[in-house]
Design a protein around this nucleic acid. Structure first.
Length: 586
RNA sequence: GAUCACGUAGCUCAAAUGGAUAGAGCUACUGCCUUCUAAGCAGUAGGUUACAGGUUCGAAUCCUGUCGUGAUCACCA
């Protein structure tokens, strides 16, 4: 066997250029996978080279092509179309690739090994998680998996907003109208229970401001119910015993509700931060910045930074009464996270409505002179909306995550009962329903809006989680069948002439590390999701057109089973990184 | 109004960061189960990539402008 088989064509091509044209260091080469309808497997784009070498593209193509072909002892062929040098793998080369993939090392990556902290989900402690949180949490969770898969050490955190006026609103209403009921008394999830009182407040408030004239909007802040909420906040700030007790109690209800939702979704965190613990941090840094004249103090005592030179406005960092703001906390928290945990990167998964906030935050930290500013990343994602438009809590059209989860599982059960589901278990419906839901959310590019139609629910055909699940179960079922009718032989595959389906499968399976890396570099799980779909689709073409098991041709059946097995593993590996469980039979 | 993001088939989404003839699924119609799982496969139909310029060997992708949608523009979070 020749070593060249496991050396990449890219490397040999690079070598050819320094050898043939004496260019050092060799220029960045533009490789791509050959387009579907062109002959070939890997393509080198010659236009940029032609400029550097100052020769006609075709001439360069022949020279490089021949060099590579010879170095691979003719097991790579090539053709030139326009400015594209297409390398064509021969039969043997494909078989070598397959054998390479059978080595478990193919799936072990150490692309990079950094300590990365990733913050996601981060809900308010006064209502259940909704579709927006669902997208956020699924993104964060799967991205964490992807980061780990390429070798990073990942710390997953959520930060719960458990203090402030909005928390006092639900507390107030429970005090007034809750008649001492607990979630248990009414058989409700704790977060839904508390959310009920939060919405009650909003309704009462809307009712009170209805009569306020538009000419005097300032009156809105003076309506009785809001005054009451503010006085409760004051009590909380003064650590009034009763208020603290109620606050803790209600928060615990909410957290137990969150826990259930997260558990259903298979989402977890390494730890949770609470704003009530950290909202004061950052004040020292603001004082320090003031001392260093990076910030300035206004007449009323408030502290600001002027960011107009950077295209932003003036930003308030500490109120005139010296209380801190969200940004104050975020400054302090970022500094703390780097100092305490010695992290190399910090990723915030937060919706795009906070793009400006993060731009300003990063700019302020830069002005303060922190060198790790470029290690911060805000992964911004578009909103989830309904066909009727945006979800707005005031409009009352917020779809909570629990309802969707329950609904999906129900749909799965209903649909699958009609089919010949082999594993008629509750657990299977759950996996199938949630898998469809998660895939639906993750296959879409984070920066694109998701329009979620609860009536249409989620498709089970075509580019869906269910399609992939079905393909996977089919694969496992074929493997079982194989052992019933065929025996295992040793590799003797070089006598086999591969057909197009087999070549396509090998080609796409070989892309897995490339796709995973791309997914990581772009912080984008949708790339992986779309790839898994592609793998499934190609497999189904293969399956429908070729008989995979044939007891009369044991060698070929063995070869195909190895290919099938790798396909199944790749699908499972990828889906698991998306946070989706797979079932073996359906 | 200003800033930012997005605009691809009737609908939902792709397109290897500037590459070859822009691809899938849904929907509609036509075929394929005595044979490894038909939740599948094969086929037909559907496009001036919002519009107009520009940059170069080459643009859905980069630049400028216009239009449309959304987000942000608090001593809110």
């Amino acid at each position: 066997m020749n070593d060249h088989f496991f050396q990449s064509i890219e490397e040999i091509t690079k070598e050819s250029i320094s050898c043939l044209y004496k260019i050092n260091p060799s220029p960045k080469l533009k490789f791509q996978y050959t387009k579907k309808n062109c002959l070939g497997d890997l393509t080198l784009i010659l236009f940029p080279l032609s400029k550097i070498i100052n020769k006609h593209v075709e001439k360069i193509g022949y020279e490089i092509g021949n060099y590579v072909k010879n170095r691979f002892d003719q097991s790579i062929q090539f053709s030139i179309v326009g400015g594209f040098l297409n390398f064509i793998f021969t039969n043997d080369y494909y078989i070598h690739i397959l054998m390479n993939m059978l080595n478990p090392d193919f799936y072990k990556f150490k692309i990079s090994s950094k300590k990365i902290m990733i913050e996601y989900s981060s809900p308010n402690a006064n209502k259940p998680l909704h579709l927006g949180h669902l997208r956020n949490a699924l993104l964060g969770s799967s991205l964490s998996n992807i980061l780990e898969a390429v070798g990073h050490k990942v710390t997953k955190i959520q930060i719960i907003n458990d203090r402030g006026i909005h928390i006092c609103k639900s507390m107030l209403c429970w005090k007034k109208f809750g008649s001492d009921q607990t979630p248990n008394d009414v058989q409700m999830k704790g977060d839904h229970f508390v959310g009920k009182y939060y919405h009650l407040f909003e309704n009462l408030y809307q009712n009170e401001i209805k009569h306020i004239s538009k000419k005097d909007p300032e009156q809105k802040v003076d309506v009785p119910i809001l005054k009451e909420a503010r006085s409760l906040l004051k009590k909380w700030e003064n650590r009034d015993h009763q208020t603290m007790h109620l606050w803790k109690k209600m928060n615990e209800w909410v957290y137990s509700g969150f826990e259930k939702t997260y558990k259903d979704l298979g989402i977890c965190f390494d730890w949770t931060e609470y704003e009530s613990d950290i909202f004061q941090i950052g004040r020292d840094i603001v004082q320090e910045g003031l001392y260093k004249k990076i910030f300035y103090q206004k007449q009323d005592g408030s502290i600001c930074i002027d960011l107009t030179k950077d295209g932003f406005d003036e930003k308030l960092l500490l109120r005139s009464d010296q209380t801190s703001l969200y940004i104050t906390q975020d400054i302090g928290n970022a500094v703390e996270r780097f100092r305490k945990h010695k992290i190399d990167r910090l990723i915030y998964i937060v919706g795009k409505e906070q793009d400006y906030h993060f731009q300003v935050l990063f700019k302020i930290l830069k002005r303060l002179g922190y060198l790790w500013v470029d290690k911060l990343h805000h992964l911004s994602y578009e909103m989830v909306s309904l066909p009727s438009g945006k979800m707005k809590s005031r409009k009352g059209n917020v779809v909570n995550a629990d309802n969707i989860i329950v609904n999906m599982i129900k749909i799965a059960e209903k649909k699958f009962l009609k089919k010949s589901l082999i594993d008629k278990k509750k657990e299977s419906y759950k996996i199938l329903g949630l898998g469809a839901l998660k895939f639906y959310f993750l296959k879409i590019d984070p920066k694109k809006e998701i329009i979620f139609d609860t009536n249409k629910s989620i498709d089970m055909k075509g580019n869906t989680g269910t399609y992939i699940q079905y393909t996977y179960s089919r694969i496992r079922s074929i493997e079982k069948k194989f052992f019933d009718v065929c025996s295992i032989t040793h590799y003797d595959w070089f006598t086999i002439t591969l057909n197009t389906y087999e070549k396509c499968m090998i080609k796409i399976l070989q892309k897995y590390p490339f796709v995973l890396n791309k997914s990581y570099l772009n912080f984008n799980p949708s790339l992986l999701a779309n790839y898994i779909y592609e793998v499934s689709k190609l497999f189904n073409h293969f399956y429908q057109n070729k008989k995979l098991i044939n007891p009369k041709n044991v060698i070929r059946s063995n070869f195909r089973m190895n290919l099938v097995h790798i396909t199944g593993n790749t699908i499972k590996l990828g889906m698991n990184l998306l946070g989706i469980d797979m079932i073996e039979r359906m």
